[in-house]
Amino acid sequence: MILDLHNHSIKSDDGRARVESYCQWIRKKEIPIDGFVLTEHRQYDDESDYRALEDEFGLRILKGSEVETEYGHVLVFGVNDDLRAAFDFTRIDLPLATVLEESGRCGAQAVPCHPGRPNVGLCAHYETRGVPEGVEIIEVASGGSRAGEDEAAAALAERHDYAGVGGSDAHIVSHIGRCATRFPREIRDEEDLVAALREGGFEAVRWT
């Protein structure tokens, strides 16, 4: 199963895409993904219900979040009430250690994203802040990367033996499906996604 793990809708302050339009785009352009995850900035969207769109377009639509830490931005999958009570998603200076630990404790999975990006990626902080404990997976293919940034992420993953996922970091409709993650199993919901990430065996894929 192939899921694009990193996308933003109009729920994010800088997102300009309707979720329905993402679905239409994927089908119109025959993008070979089975679904995507909405990772809105500094929040978890528990209001929206995308089940009707899932049925209409035959796509899996899951929800996560993208939070901000001193080591850069981090995707969190499997967000639940416990995790939302554990730290303030709206802060822009969360301790990475807290996000990693609490995600583990609450049955979620934290994945630092676009590690090669200046300031908001892990690579920029390793020299000054040291190697953080508890990172297991990072985003090695990002649709928002500039030249050299994904290569830096891949090198980091190899050096520290991190697993790698892919996501488009789409903010507009036509940017979805640029990068994704191929899993060796079916994923039905957010809990399944966390389980699949913990099991391993997945790989990042890129189409651009």
Partner: peptide
Amino acid sequence: VYRKTGRSGS
């Protein structure tokens, strides 16, 4: 007026 982090830092 609001704050966030990006390529240029906070």
